[in-house]
Design a protein around this nucleic acid. Structure first.
Length: 377
DNA sequence: GACGATGATTCCAT
DNA sequence: ATGGAATCATCGTC
C-alpha cells in the first residue's frame, strides 16, 4: 500500500467511516482489481490540492467580477443554480474542475471530506443548535394574541364590527373597550402587522432558497453536506426571527399607546340627545314613587334612547341622587313632565275609547304620573 | 374663562 | 350585584 492509499485509509479511520459511508467501496476494489493504477488516487488528490490552491472566491471573482456575492436577486437564482458554462473561467480551471467532477473516485472522496468537515464543525459549534423558544418572543406572541392582533380575527375585526360598536354606543362598564375608533385603529395595526410579517416571511423563504441553491451548486466543487445546508438555513431563520421580534415589539408598543390613549379618553362623553333625555325623564317622573327601573325596563329604555343599559343605570343613579339633593330645583321639570305625561295618557285614552278598545292609559309602557306639585307622591 | 349641567367613575354599604 | 354618595372630567352656555 503506497503512502496515498494509506492516507485515504487513515482519513476513513479519522472520520470513523463505515463502508456504507464511503459510498461504493466495491467500485474502488473493482478499479484496483481491474488493474486501474493506484496512481488514480494520487492524480485526484493532486488535482484537489491544485484546485484548492485556487480558492473558490477567486474563481467566482473571475466569474462575476462586477458583483459581490452578497448582492443577489431572485432572478439571479437561475444563473447561480444553473450551469457555469457561461462564465469566463480560465480554461485550465474549467478543465480540471470537469475532470474532477467526472472522476469515479469523486463521490467517495467527497463523502470522506464531508464527514471530516461535519465532525469538525459539530465539535466547534454543534452545541447550541437546538435553542429553546425565546421567552420574550413568546411573551410578545401572547400579548398580540390577547389583543387580537395576531391569531384569528375577533368578531370580524372589520368595519362592520366597528360600525356595530359605534351603534351600541360603547359599553365602558363591561371592562372591554368597544370604541369604534379604537377598533378601527386596532384593525389598522393588525393589517400593517400582517402585511409586514408576510413580507418578512417571503423575503426569508426567498433568501433561504437562494442560499440553498448556492450551497448545492457549490457542493459540486467543495464538500458541503446536507447537514451543513440545514445548519445554514437555521442560521438564516434565526436572523429573520430576530427581525420578526422587532416587528412584534413595535406592534406591541403601538397597541399599548393606542390602549392608553383610549383608556384615558374613556371619560370623554357626549350629552345624550334631547329625545333620549326626554324619554328618561318621562320614565323618572312618572315613576317618582319608585324610580328604579327593572332590568327589562332598563333594556327597553336603552333601546328607545339608543344608549346602553349601563348608561341608563348611570343616568338613573345620577338623577335620583341629584333630585333628592335638590327637589326644589327639579320642581319645575317635574311639573312639566307630569303635565306632559298626563296629556299623553289622556290622548292615548281618548284614542282607545274612540277605537272602542279596552286599552289602559298605561298601554304606552309607562304608568301615568303620580307626582303632585308639592313634590309628594 | 367661569360656571352650571351632565355622564362616568370610584368607593362604600347593603 | 345594586344603589348611594362623592368626585372627576367634559360639555354647553354666557
Amino acid at each position: 500500500m503506497d503512502e496515498q492509499t494509506r492516507m485515504l485509509a487513515s482519513m476513513g479511520g479519522l472520520g470513523g467511516l463505515s463502508q456504507a459511508d464511503v459510498g461504493d467501496p466495491d467500485s474502488v476494489r473493482k478499479q484496483q482489481s481491474l488493474g486501474q493504477p493506484q496512481q488514480d488516487i494520487g492524480d485526484i488528490l493532486q488535482q484537489i490540492m491544485a484546485i484548492t490552491d485556487e480558492s473558490l472566491d477567486e474563481a467566482q471573482a473571475r466569474c462575476w467580477p462586477e458583483e459581490a456575492p452578497a448582492q443577489w436577486t431572485p432572478q439571479r437564482e437561475g444563473e447561480l443554480g444553473g450551469s457555469t458554462a457561461g462564465c469566463a473561467l480560465p480554461l485550465n480551471f474549467q478543465h480540471r474542475k470537469h475532470a474532477l467532477n467526472c472522476h469515479r473516485m469523486k463521490p467517495a472522496l467527497f463523502s470522506v471530506l464531508c464527514e471530516i468537515k461535519e465532525k469538525t464543525v459539530l465539535s466547534i459549534r454543534g452545541v447550541q443548535e437546538e435553542d429553546p423558544p425565546d421567552p420574550q418572543i413568546m411573551r410578545l406572541d401572547n400579548m398580540l394574541l390577547a389583543e387580537g392582533v395576531s391569531g384569528p380575527e375577533k368578531g370580524g375585526g372589520s368595519a362592520a364590527a366597528a360600525a356595530a360598536a359605534a351603534a351600541a354606543g360603547g359599553s365602558p362598564n363591561d371592562g372591554s373597550i368597544e370604541h369604534s375608533d379604537y377598533r378601527a385603529k386596532l384593525a389598522q395595526i393588525r393589517q400593517i402587522y400582517h402585511s409586514e410579517l408576510e413580507k418578512y416571511e417571503q423575503a426569508c423563504s426567498e433568501f433561504t432558497n437562494h442560499v440553498m441553491n448556492l450551497l448545492r451548486e457549490q457542493s459540486r466543487t467543495r464538500p458541503i453536506s446536507p447537514k451543513e445546508i440545514e445548519r445554514m438555513v437555521a442560521i438564516i431563520h434565526r436572523k429573520f426571527s430576530s427581525i420578526q421580534m422587532q416587528l412584534k415589539q413595535s406592534t406591541c408598543e403601538a397597541v399599548m399607546i393606542l390602549r392608553s390613549r383610549f383608556l384615558d379618553a374613556r371619560r370623554k362623553r357626549r350629552n345624550f340627545n334631547k329625545q333620549a333625555t326626554e324619554v328618561l325623564n318621562e320614565y323618572f317622573y312618572s315613576h317618582l314613587s319608585n324610580p328604579y327601573p327593572s332590568e327589562e325596563a332598563k333594556e327597553e329604555l336603552a333601546k328607545k334612547c339608543g344608549i346602553t343599559v349601563s348608561q341608563v343605570s348611570n343616568w338613573f343613579g345620577n338623577k335620583r341622587i341629584r333630585y333628592k339633593k335638590n327637589i326644589g330645583k327639579f320642581q319645575e321639570e317635574a311639573n312639566l313632565y307630569a303635565v306632559k305625561t298626563a296629556v299623553d295618557a289622556a290622548n292615548v285614552s281618548a284614542q282607545a275609547s274612540q277605537a272602542n278598545s279596552p286599552a289602559t292609559p298605561n298601554s304606552g309602557g309607562y304608568p301615568a304620573p303620580c307626582y303632585t306639585p308639592d313634590g309628594r307622591l
